[in-house]
């Protein structure tokens, strides 16, 4: 929420080491309220900032409630003027986009070329695939990055949402935080992935509802989530090391929670090598 932006950032910044500038905070504080009014949405949240070499993308997200719908993302280049961030057109496009590496520039119109083997549509049957050069705009990459990160880090504490027998997902009005034992365990944090939400990248679409509210402790690679409770007492922060720049927070005794991302959108592929062996293995090995 725009009104809670400062508070949420206050929890996330100390663990991220990255922050919004005063300028950005001030501008967002104004422009998100206008955006919420213009889009006439109930829930509008600041989602994060993706840094390019020349400019940044500010991302906001709105949800319709009850929560059975896709989140809608918006982006802004100056934290003032907002546009819709269209999701990748198809899984195919998403897969293609995910092949583009390197830093973003900050210019949504920046063109990337992807070379791909394709069978021409008008070709005869049995024709050889040909090399095709496809052009994509940077903003499409941004949309994919946002989806991928959101898929990974949209996390809610256990008990914050509930599903009615009719299948409607809604906030649990009785939720008031987690106990100390609970908030120190990864098992208490669940992925929020509404059914209609398709996974990014080239993963298989998973239509069953297990992904919705699955515990993050099952995420791979093992150890990709860190949980720290050292900042303010009663505030827990989670970070997904696969996406450096992510932070989720929970105020344990009030149940307030949220997440944000400030980073350059790069995935840490080396994580499996970086993580120390699991404690048990460590013991047996030495």
């Amino acid at each position: 929420e725009p009104e809670k932006l400062m508070q949420g950032l206050g929890y996330c910044c100390p663990v991220l080491g990255r922050t919004l500038t005063q300028w950005e905070k001030s501008s967002l504080g104004t422009s998100l309220l206008v955006l919420r009014k213009e889009k006439a949405v109930d829930v509008l949240k600041f989602w994060g900032k993706i840094t390019g070499t020349q400019g940044d993308y500010f991302i906001a997200v709105s949800y319709a409630r009850p929560y059975d719908f896709l989140p809608t993302f918006y982006y802004s280049r100056n934290a003032t003027d907002w546009d819709d961030l269209e999701p990748p057109a198809s899984l195919e496009v998403a897969a293609r986009l995910s092949k583009i590496k390197g830093l973003l520039t900050g210019d949504p119109e920046n063109e990337y070329e992807v070379t791909e083997m394709q069978i021409p549509e008008d070709a005869e049957e049995g024709a050889e695939p040909e090399e095709v050069v496809l052009q994509h705009k940077e903003i499409e990459r941004v949309a994919l990055i946002v989806k991928a990160i959101d898929y990974a880090i949209c996390v809610i504490p256990k008990g914050a949402l509930l599903r009615t027998p009719e299948g409607v997902v809604m906030e649990n009005p009785a939720f008031d935080g987690l106990s100390e034992k609970e908030y120190r365990s990864l098992d208490s944090y669940l992925h929020f992935r509404p059914d209609a939400y398709y996974p990014p990248d080239d993963e298989v679409v998973c239509a069953d509802t297990d992904l919705f509210l699955a515990s993050i402790s099952l995420d791979l690679p093992v150890g990709c989530w860190t949980l720290k409770a050292s900042g303010a007492p009663t505030v827990v922060t989670l970070q997904n090391l696969v996406f450096p720049g992510t932070a989720c927070f929970l105020v344990a005794d009030t149940g307030e929670h949220g997440y944000c991302y400030i980073g350059d959108g790069v995935v840490n592929d080396d994580l499996p090598f970086q993580l120390p062996p699991l404690p048990e293995l460590d013991k047996s090995g030495l």
């Binding site: 206008v34 829930v43 929670h257």
Partner: peptide, 29 residues
């Protein structure tokens, strides 16, 4: 930031105008 939000909020017209004026402060000149 928190996922849950309690009630819908309607800005008055005056508040909206105020916000839009302030927003211009941040717009590129």
């Amino acid at each position: 930031d928190p996922v849950i939000h309690k009630q819908s909020r309607e800005l008055t017209d005056a508040a909206t105008k105020f916000l839009k004026t302030q927003k211009l402060l941040f717009a590129p000149p």
